[in-house]
Write a protein that binds this DNA or RNA. Structure first.
Lengths: 159, 159
DNA sequence: ACCCTATCTGCATCTCATGCGAACACGCAA
DNA sequence: TTGCGTGTTCGCATGAGATGCAGATAGGGT
């Protein structure tokens, strides 16, 4: 997504208002490669702006997404993740800590696919599931991992 | 997944019981390429066995999934989809009717990926999003499409 | 036929997300 | 600077999807 300043201009030009809540979220999202959840952003925003509503966070994320400044992904392992990187890329997800990282797949837009008869394709998402470096070394049952507080649904048998 | 008869044997050999409810679900899932939801299976099962509990459907689906007889996928467009095809394949999802079809991607297991440093990959999922043949021709706002009753969340701006 | 234990069922509970309406405030205009 | 109109924010209610729990039920080996 664009910089906070550019977004502010874009919002005003679209007749949308630039509120402190939105500006804060612009800053929190800019260059954020952590693929945060709405709750994570709400927590981060609350530190700088106590009283901000979770509803506002959801609203702003929805707005940015429909403006194409943000992408949202559901990896089937919990709440949606938001990604300010709207360029062509794909994702790898750790099945233990649920961390997400961007990956770049050569030739992803030129795959040889059978079974698409009649389909018009808009977008292709490639998601790798595995174990991240940290979780590979740490037998993370003690909560020592930064994200170990994120619950892992149906551990060992997720979609 | 294996045939109902084979599954019955496998269940008994594992000390699990073969109940009428499970047998029914074995049959409903066998060779089922529609990627049904838990609710769809519950509806189909209820026709043949009025009174069956949705809870039992969820339970059996979870069991089959952890036994590796079934895969569950969350395409971010509603409830989880279940797939008895556990072979190597991928999916295409219609953004209008939410139908899912299997696709086969040549060389999918041998992609050239940058950014996986330290990750151990278990599985890679490729999902194509687009418009199916039927939805491409039918401007399906009238409900004429079989699956048009499945609501499409955040139409036009989904993950 | 009997018993042990896995299963089924119904309800409560949980998470994530959105609908709604009153109070609020951005930002244009005077 | 002040005032106004409309877009926003906020809190609560609501909704979907899925799971936890416990009493009743029924496989299936003996």
């Amino acid at each position: 997504m664009r910089s906070p300043a550019e977004l502010s201009s874009a919002f005003r030009e679209s007749g949308l208002k630039v509120t402190p809540q939105r500006q804060l979220l612009f800053r929190l999202l800019h260059d954020n490669a952590t693929h945060p959840t709405a709750d994570a952003l709400f927590a981060a925003a609350s530190e700088q702006m106590p009283g901000i509503s979770l509803r506002t966070v959801y609203q702003t994320l929805t707005d940015l997404t429909s403006m194409g400044e943000l992408q949202s992904f559901d990896f089937g392992n919990g709440p949606a993740r938001f990604d300010p990187n709207v360029g062509s890329h794909h994702h790898v997800v750790c099945r233990s800590c649920n961390d997400v990282a961007d990956v770049y797949v050569a030739g992803a837009s030129d795959l040889d696919v059978a079974g698409l008869e009649g389909f018009t394709i808009d977008r292709s998402d490639i998601v790798f599931h595995g174990l991240c470096a940290r979780c590979s070394t740490t037998q993370d049952v003690t909560g020592s991992h930064p994200n170990s507080n994120i619950p892992s649904p149906t551990t060992g048998a997720m979609s």
